[in-house]
């Protein structure tokens, strides 16, 4: 009984995918918790280990040449950008836009995320290669 009322009560742009909302939120929560670890590692490794908190150019290159650091930094970049994009999406979705606009917003944010990730990897790659 409740199900058939569902669509009559609130026409929906996106058909009820059953997991429509929970996955997005769980990922946001999981990425957030992961970030606490990854960001913690990033800050400590980048700024606390080094005297004075900042590495000069040579130190950065040598730091990034270590493959483990490279892997952790890359994971950190991906998770951070994912979390940031979902966060902005949540903020924008609070403006009560129409379903169509919200779909456009989602696509733009995916594009922005990919662009940011691309740029970040390019930066890491060029530094690591010590051009």
């Amino acid at each position: 009984m409740a199900a058939d009322l569902n669509d009559r009560v609130r026409p929906r742009a996106v058909p009820p995918s059953g997991r429509g909302g929970s996955l997005a939120w769980i990922l946001q929560a999981v990425s957030g918790v992961a970030l606490i670890v990854l960001l913690g590692v990033h800050i400590v490794a980048q700024h606390f280990v080094v005297k004075g908190g900042l590495r000069d150019y040579a130190q950065v290159v040598s730091y990034l040449s270590n493959p483990l650091v490279l892997a952790v930094e890359s994971l950190f970049v991906v998770v951070l950008i994912w979390h940031a994009m979902l966060g902005i999406r949540a903020v924008l979705f609070d403006f009560g836009f129409s379903a169509k606009t919200e779909a456009v917003i989602s696509r733009c944010l995916v594009a922005l995320g990919l662009a940011t990730a691309g740029y970040s990897f390019w930066v890491i790659a060029t530094i690591a290669s010590g051009r």
Binding site: D56, Y57, A58, V60, T116, Y119, S120, W122, V123, T126, I127, R131
Partner: peptide, 14 residues
């Protein structure tokens, strides 16, 4: 991310 761009310019700008 913008500032890190300087790193890719090489040691001088950094």
């Amino acid at each position: 991310l913008g500032i890190l761009y300087l790193l890719t310019e090489g040691p001088r700008s950094w």
